[in-house]
């Protein structure tokens, strides 16, 4: 059989543009014509998406639609996967961070990330939080302050303050995930990327994570990938619907869920999908 190598032709669904040109909030991060290839696979196609300051943007869509891939571009985690090419611009405060001259480790301190499976290090709770700050030099006193502050912000402080120096692996799944969030905010980032942070957790822990996200947006700009549409509706200000690597629709969450402009979005939201 002949190998099909069709040249990529962009067929705009949204013209690749955000529909929110009337939005007045400042933009914290913005992608311009972002394309991602895994080898020959075109995983993200011409995506233009802004993240507005101090808001929560939910990325939804079926499995394999590219939402996680998109998220991982924003702090250059795709650099770690051999054979990945990311093209287009990712602007943060006017700087294109998708540029080989960018100091990636520096960047990741400003754009934190939390993963689907809680991944605390096999160290104490305290050590988990100070691990990264310590790499850049931090005094003992500052460390203690930072640990308390980060744990308080994630609502963990009262639960773990008596066992800061015991293993983080002894915590429950939900606590571990909140510790991972605490670890990320200890770096004082501007943006936090959450990759399905609650999908491995029970409903109670999920509820706590959702509350936490609501609180954190006062201080950070948040992008969250989720499979759970109720969750997206509950916690996000904006929602972006991805399908087959394309951004189909991006709008305010209350608008998108009630009055989607695209038929594809409506079909997905109402479960008439596929």
């Amino acid at each position: 059989m002949e190998k099909l190598i069709t040249p990529f032709r962009f067929q705009p669904k949204t013209d690749g543009r955000s529909l929110l040109t009337d939005e007045t909030r400042p933009i914290q991060l913005e992608t311009l014509d972002l394309d991602v290839y895994y080898g020959e696979k075109h995983a993200i196609k011409q995506v233009n998406l802004p993240l507005y300051q101090n808001t929560v943007t939910a990325l939804i869509g079926p499995s394999g639609c590219g939402k996680s891939t998109f998220l991982r571009c924003l702090n250059r985690m795709n650099d770690m996967i051999p054979g990945t090419r990311v093209m287009g611009k990712i602007l943060v405060e006017g700087v294109n961070i998708n540029d080989s001259r960018i100091n990636v480790t520096q960047l990741r301190r400003q754009i934190g990330m939390v993963f689907q499976r809680p991944n605390p290090f096999a160290k104490s709770i305290y050590e988990n939080i100070v691990f990264a700050p310590r790499l850049y030099g931090i005094s003992k006193k500052e460390q203690e302050k930072l640990v308390e502050e980060s744990l308080r912000k994630t609502g963990l402080w009262d639960e773990v303050k008596d066992r800061l120096h015991t293993s983080a692996l002894a915590l429950s799944g939900g606590q571990q995930q909140r510790l991972c969030i605490a670890r990320a905010i200890a770096m004082k980032p501007k943006i936090i990327l959450l990759d399905e942070p609650a999908s491995a957790l029970d409903p109670v822990s999920t509820g706590k994570i959702e509350e936490l996200v609501q609180e954190l947006k006062n201080e950070f700009t948040i992008a969250i990938v989720t499979h759970n549409m109720q969750q997206a509706a509950r916690i996000s200000d904006y929602t972006a619907y991805f399908y087959m690597g394309e951004l189909i629709e991006h709008d305010r969450t209350d608008v998108l869920f009630v009055n989607p402009r695209k038929k594809e979005t409506e079909d997905y939201l109402t479960g008439r999908f596929g």
């Binding site: 480790t105 960047l107 990330m113 939390v114 991944n119 990264a132 990320a184």
Partner: peptide
């Protein structure tokens, strides 16, 4: 060593 450990570390800006 689980891959998540490495990802977590890189995501925090570790080299």
């Amino acid at each position: 060593v689980p891959q998540g450990i490495r990802e977590g570390s890189y995501a925090l800006g570790a080299t």
